[in-house]
Design a protein around this nucleic acid. Structure first.
Length: 649
RNA sequence: GCCCAUGUGGCUCAGGGGUAGAGCACACCCUUGGUAAGGGUGAGGUCGUGAGUUCGAGUCUCACCAUGGGCUCCA
């Protein structure tokens, strides 16, 4: 018999007289390894883990996955999802199962239950899961013909499973399906799964939520139980700790604690920025204005309210009405603008444009209103009124690449200055349903690609994910907690210029249609402030801090000196305060710390006599006393240059 | 919009049928204090809104409003 060779990561070869499973290979290496085996990675395919019961072929490269490997989490969690489903059905046999996939930090299972689960039920589920894990049952894989599977699940009343199997048979022509059995309980599943349930060391049921069968509102509503599983108790504890940390830097909490913004029931989704929050808002706007100057943009102001006819022309009424606010005045229908582009098109055609006017880059900090569905609002991240750092560029097709490059450079510059170094770029290309000729799409997609390549910016292609009116770039910012946020975007638009019959006169005196680029870097000020607060945990750079310097006196003997300092700080354009309350230094420091004031100037008799200040940073570090003028210069410089980190040490 | 949870002074929360509590913040007084809370006194709430049950409702029931977790992850 021909021998079957399996290649291990160190390039050693194991030989078999038949096609072995992953587990058999592990057994051939050693019993300890076999015991710990959770799956395998075959031929290094995107580190996708296959079931340990998978049969290997001659010449396969195999990496055995054990508890020690990151990849094992997927297997553990997948099996833990089955354990949860089993636990729920042991507790409430009438509950039907649907699906239970692994997600980013855990897994969930969607149940069809006649009774809504309660928070107490979650604890019960967790207890039952632990009980099942202790039984340490062996997990077995069985392969059933479709007919048998349908009949079995039908008899059990598991209608969702039946639907899944029938769909698989119909859409993918599947003839048989795999079933995993643990003791009496079994579930239809592709795998991979553990050898025995005792290999799952740490589980935690997290939360409860509503969901819909196959994610569609029209389908029956299911109950989703979120949970997670880890390789050991320590990792689980660490994960829970990280969640606590994320909670601490939740922008809604910081917004309250730092007194930056608030909400009122009379304007759901309508944030109020306090004086302090408004400082951040305006500073960001000024920051962008400075960049606009550098990159050749002109700022414009356009109306808030438009006759609905505008939105018929732009197509928003037909496609976006659900999200718009309307108002009738003098028997005429108006709508609040949900975006700036239609207004900008009107402004574009207010006068005759020549090719010499292009590219025409106009920026607008106009307020937008979008009627988001009531259940989707979330702090500053999703609101109903907001302001984008929006701009539109009208240009010729052959100018596209240059404009895209310029945009990406500007984005890179801004993100770098804000210490947002980690971001990903996605290029979405033509969808099935689209407008415009293939030639225009070729040009636009080509321009996007060439611009990214010219700047050596790595990107991923989302094939077919573009808008019907043009391809786009989406920029996902990844924050310090590794969470992605979509902030920046650049979209090519062939539709709007068409709808508004925009034109320019070319060199040879022909009327030509410009291309329109929609672009934003921060997204919206609202969302950006939310994201940035979480990214920095509220430790905003000095130039964005509502209070930049606070003077703290020890006794009222220093009052005159402190008043002088305050005046000089304010005259230098800094946002400075003097805490002149008759409180102890420790108390004043505590307060300034909690407000995350970047610089605390401690002034006692010593400082006063030597005309110095002692600086305390919000990091807790205390610096030695120095000349006030030197400090003032340094802070001014830091603010002027909008530095992220303090140079004062 | 849908499912579940929550809503008590500015903030964080306790109280679960007999008519409102704490800490912080706030005001005043004492304390002049060297790097994250000195002490005292006081003011402040028709307990999200509306209806119902009850002799009596923050407390139980229902409706509404708002907020929070989700509704994208597909055997």
């Amino acid at each position: 018999m021909a021998s079957i060779q399996i290649v291990l990561p160190d390039n050693s070869i194991k030989e078999f007289d038949h096609e072995p499973t992953v587990l058999e290979v592990a057994q051939s290496i050693g019993p300890r390894l076999a015991k710990d085996t959770l799956g395998g990675i075959v031929n290094d395919q995107h580190s996708e883990v296959v079931d340990l019961r998978t049969q290997l072929k001659d010449g396969d490269h195999l990496k055995i996955v054990t508890l020690k490997d990151e990849e094992s989490l997927e297997v553990i969690r997948h099996s833990a999802a089955h354990v949860m489903a089993q636990a729920v059905q042991e507790l409430w046999p009438e509950v039907k199962v649907t699906i239970g996939p692994v997600i980013e930090n855990g897994f969930y299972y969607d149940f069809d239950s006649p009774r809504a689960f309660t928070p107490e039920d979650l604890q019960q589920i967790e207890k039952k899961m632990e009980e099942i894990l202790r039984r340490n049952e062996v997990v077995e894989r069985e392969v059933w013909p479709v007919d048998q599977a349908v009949a079995t699940f039908e008899k059990m009343g598991e209608r969702f499973k039946v639907e899944i199997i029938k769909d698989l048979a119909r859409e993918e022509g599947v003839k048989e399906v795999s079933v995993y059995r643990q003791g009496q309980w079994f579930d239809l599943c592709r795998g991979p799964h553990v050898q025995s349930l005792g290999q799952i060391k740490a589980v935690k049921v997290m939360s409860l939520a509503g969901s819909y069968w196959r994610g569609d509102e029209k389908n029956p509503q299911l109950q989703r139980v979120y949970a997670t599983a880890f390789n050991d108790k320590k990792d689980l504890a660490e994960h829970l700790h990280n969640l606590e940390e994320a909670k601490k830097r939740d922008h809604r909490k910081l917004g309250k604690d730092l007194n930056l913004f608030t909400f009122h029931p009379l304007s759901p989704g309508g944030p109020f920025f306090t004086p302090k929050g408004t400082v951040i808002y305006n500073e960001l706007q000024n920051f962008l204005r400075e960049k606009y100057g550098k990159y050749g943009y002109q700022e414009v102001i356009t109306p808030q309210l438009f006759d609905v006819d505008l939105y018929h022309q732009s197509g928003h009424y037909e496609n976006y009405r659900e999200n718009m606010y309307f108002s009738q005045i003098d028997e005429r229908d108006f709508s609040f603008k949900p975006m700036n582009c239609p207004g900008h098109c009107l402004l574009y055609s207010a006068d005759k444009k020549s090719y010499r006017d292009l590219p025409w880059r106009i920026a607008d900090f106009g307020r937008l209103h979008r009627h988001e569905r009531s259940g989707v609002m979330h702090g500053l991240n999703r609101v109903r009124t907001f302001c984008q750092d929006d701009a539109h560029i009208f240009c010729r097709v052959d100018q596209l690449q240059g404009e895209i490059e310029s945009f990406m450079s500007m984005l890179r510059e801004i993100y770098k200055q804000l210490n947002m170094q980690d971001y990903r770029v996605y290029l979405s290309t033509r969808p099935e349903k689209r407008m415009g000729s293939d030639q225009i799409w070729d040009q636009a997609e080509g321009a996007l690609k060439m611009a990214l390549e010219a700047l050596k910016i790595p990107y991923q292609v989302n094939k077919g994910d573009g808008a019907f009116y043009g391809p786009k770039l989406d920029i996902m910012f990844v924050d310090v907690l590794k969470r992605p946020w979509q902030l920046g975007t650049l979209q090519c638009d062939f539709n709007m210029p068409e709808a508004f019959e925009l034109a320019y006169v070319s060199e040879d005196n022909q009327e030509e249609r410009p291309v329109m680029l929609h672009r934003a870097i921060l997204g919206s000020f609202e969302r950006f402030i939310g994201v940035y607060l979480e990214h920095t945990a509220g430790h905003l750079p000095t130039w964005l801090s509502p209070v930049q310097v606070r003077v703290l006196n020890l006794t009222d003997r220093q009052n005159d000196y402190c008043a002088q300092l305050l005046q000089q700080l304010q005259e230098a354009g800094l946002r400075a305060e003097w805490d002149d309350r008759r409180e102890k230094l420790g108390f004043k420091i505590r307060q300034a710390q909690m407000e995350k004031v970047p610089y605390m100037l401690v002034v006692g008799d010593r400082e006063m006599e030597e005309k110095k200040v002692t600086i305390r940073l919000r990091s807790g570090q205390s610096l030695e006393a120095r000349d006030f003028g030197v400090f003032l210069q340094a802070v001014r410089q830091e603010v002027l240059l909008r530095q992220f980190n303090s140079e004062i040490t």
